[in-house]
Amino acid sequence: MSVVLVLNADYGPLHRVSVRHAIRMLFREVAVVQEARPDARIGVFPIPTVIRLVSYVVTRWRHSRGPGWSRAGVLSRDGRRCGYCGGVASTVDHVLPRSRGGANSWENTVAACGRCNQRKGNRTPAEARMPLRSAPRAPGWAELAAH
Rank of each mutant, 00 (worst) to 15 (best):
V95Y: 07
N122G: 03
I47C: 09
A36V: 02
R20A: 13
V44C: 11
P67W: 06
L144N: 03
K120S: 04
P46L: 06
H94K: 05
P131Y: 02
P131H: 03
V32Q: 11
S18C: 08
D10C: 07
V44D: 13
R16W: 13
T124D: 07
R65C: 08
S134P: 01
A36S: 14
S99K: 09
V88M: 10
S55E: 15
G102Q: 07
R77Y: 01
D39G: 08
R115M: 08
S64W: 11
R133G: 05
E127Q: 12
R28K: 12
R71K: 14
G114S: 10
C82Y: 01
A135P: 00
H15D: 11
R62C: 09
A103I: 01
R80H: 15
H94P: 08
V4A: 07
V74P: 01
L96K: 12
A89E: 04
G83C: 02
V88T: 10
A111P: 01
P48S: 06
R71L: 06
T91G: 00
D10E: 09
L53G: 04
A40L: 15
L53D: 03
R24Y: 12
Y56I: 12
R52C: 08
G102V: 09
R100S: 00
I51T: 04
F27A: 14
R100K: 10
